[in-house]
Design a binder for these strands. Structure first.
Lengths: 342, 342
DNA sequence: CTGAAAGCGCTTACAG
DNA sequence: CTGAAAGCGCTTACAG
């Protein structure tokens, strides 16, 4: 007997001389099947290269075995590279899904556009993972909508009280504090922060707050002109640093909100004839691969993307099965290279 | 009337006072529906936040509206970063899918393991895109299996005659030729190729063949000791270059099979006290973002990932609808920076 | 341990 | 233009 087209469980049933439900049970490892019968069924299934039709089984079970990753890119990525940090997150999320037997749908979205977030409504995915960058004030309303609709989702970002939904983030405050304490220990006293630390960018804000705390503890008064806005691109970091140098010529350290900003800052400093770290120390945040390739190597704060990916996926799976899931913070770790001194 | 759980087309039918098939027709934009009826149905659907159940419609239509991207990583990526070139490809493939109304499943695979390539058999995807690196001799048998099973797939790689399935790749030969011609024009005469140019790595092989052709044309005889194996990682490029310098102390140029190799090579050259490009010119392939950040900037061959992603997706969609699809080659473009001279 | 029956939510002939 | 019917390929009570 040859099967026309793809084999179905019914084909197997005929070949094995059993009913179709028995095939289904055998395939799914149900204990209520005679071992001999199961063996026969599995052999036939293998021979026909049979695979369960996921559309059918998902329809029946009302779930999909799939998670969707929505990646946000604002501003548009055509003129600036996507932060490599997110590539690392994507990799760890993919692997975490695979380890747990879930497939991952990936979708790139503009933060400002309508989100194609209906993967769950259409039963293509059981929940969403949100990742990327952009203005939190813009995304916040959408997050509230998702909560309102009962969508299952987790996001990577600052895990702060009062946020809609579940967030997983790193300890931005602690990272900012530790790095700034390190700069101070290296003798730095006029430490600028390059990054938009408004409520639009809560992660930068936390990093900045940590930085200010470290200065407080060292008896240094943080000056308002030491804070300058930038978004997380090299270009923005470069431009901001150029302006910063006008305002604060006697700067002795730059703590950048991200590594990309830091790399732009280093470039601006070089162009101004300033030596890193001799004249100005530079530190970043993320520990992207690039950080170890620039000259001097960039000191930065590492976020454990492997743990982050696993935590995002596990939290989402928890939400899906109805557990109470809390926002969580993972540790930040200093990685010291040449840019902050030896 | 409140709907318990998710709304279905039947719920809408009841509310609109029509039959369920009419709802389906209206939602799918069938012309055979009274405009007034359609309006009513769409209004109700919007209000209920109704979304078509993809499992049900896919089951019925026997297709999924989804493509699967299998990304291969050999050797294991834990100790070396994934080639950023593939991140760029992933982005362009994702966008190309979205533009065409397809969703994308992403899966990371070990080249040597069993491939989880049953997305099509299980009707989770209509076809596969294969991307990544590793030994072609290992993957070739699997590709043949896929062809044998009638799986729809395209792969990124050297598009050479006699390969199983459809391949999209860049003009590696031309890229190798052009870059080597440039090196020769810069006065270089002893040009090593760092990369495994055996049949295990057809892309490297083509780049190397192009390089040799350029030397031929310039009357330079390529010497066997100028060729040294490496896989596409910085570490491998570093190690190979260290050995190469032993063998060929009077080297004046290194053409690396990839940018990552080139960056490892530059590091090895620096460690040996050799100046780039003063003593030894260095060129790479891919134009990863890192290439413009190293010092000096790395001259390289750019592959148009945007075009590549679109072509991969379009070719796969062509295969799925049963068109005759050919392997294709896209142009390679020199990007000259400081590492090959001014 | 196994089978007959129902049903997941759609789409598509078929008949009117 | 619309509805009644069938069926996509599964899984899961239910009965034996």
């Amino acid at each position: 007997m040859t099967i026309k087209g793809k084999a179905t469980s019914l084909d197997i049933a005929h070949l094995a001389g059993v009913s179709q439900p028995t095939v289904s049970r055998a395939l799914r490892g149900s204990p209520m099947v005679n071992p001999e019968t199961r063996r026969r069924i599995l052999a036939i299934a293998r021979e026909l290269n049979y695979k369960v039709d996921k559309n059918a089984s998902n329809l029946r079970c009302q779930q999909s075995g799939t998670l969707a990753l929505l990646f946000f890119e604002d501003p548009t990525p055509d003129d600036s590279l996507i932060n490599p940090f997110f590539h690392s997150m994507l990799g760890s999320i993919t692997r975490a899904c695979a380890l747990r037997g879930y497939d991952l749908l990936v979708s790139f979205q503009q933060l400002s556009d309508d989100w194609h977030a209906d993967y769950e409504d259409s039963n293509k995915a059981d929940g969403l993972i949100l990742l990327g960058y952009g203005d939190y004030l813009v995304s916040r309303r959408r997050l509230e909508q998702l909560v309102g609709q009962g969508t299952h989702f987790v996001r990577w970002g600052a895990a702060l009280p009062g946020q809609p939904g579940v967030s997983i983030g790193c300890d931005n405050f602690r990272g900012g504090l530790d790095m700034t304490a390190h700069l101070i220990a290296q003798g730095r006293r006029r430490i600028a922060f390059v990054g938009d630390a408004s409520e639009r960018y809560p992660e930068f804000r936390e990093r900045y707050r940590g930085s200010v705390r470290a200065m407080d503890e060292a008896g240094i008064e943080a000056r308002p002109e030491w804070l300058i806005d930038a978004i997380s691109t090299e270009q923005s970091g470069h431009a901001a640093t150029v302006e910063l140098l006008q305002r604060v010529p006697d700067l002795d350290a730059v703590f950048a909100g991200s590594d990309l900003i830091a790399i732009g800052a280093m470039k601006a400093l070089h162009e101004s004839g300033l030596h890193v770290p001799g004249d100005v120390a530079v530190a970043g945040f993320d520990d992207i691969p690039l950080a170890s390739f620039v000259t001097p190597g960039l000191s930065t704060v590492q976020q454990d993307t492997r743990q982050a990916g696993a935590l995002l996926v596990d939290s989402l799976l928890g939400l899906i099965v109805g557990e109470a899931v809390e926002s969580r913070t993972i540790p930040a770790k200093l990685v010291l290279r040449g840019s902050t001194g030896n």
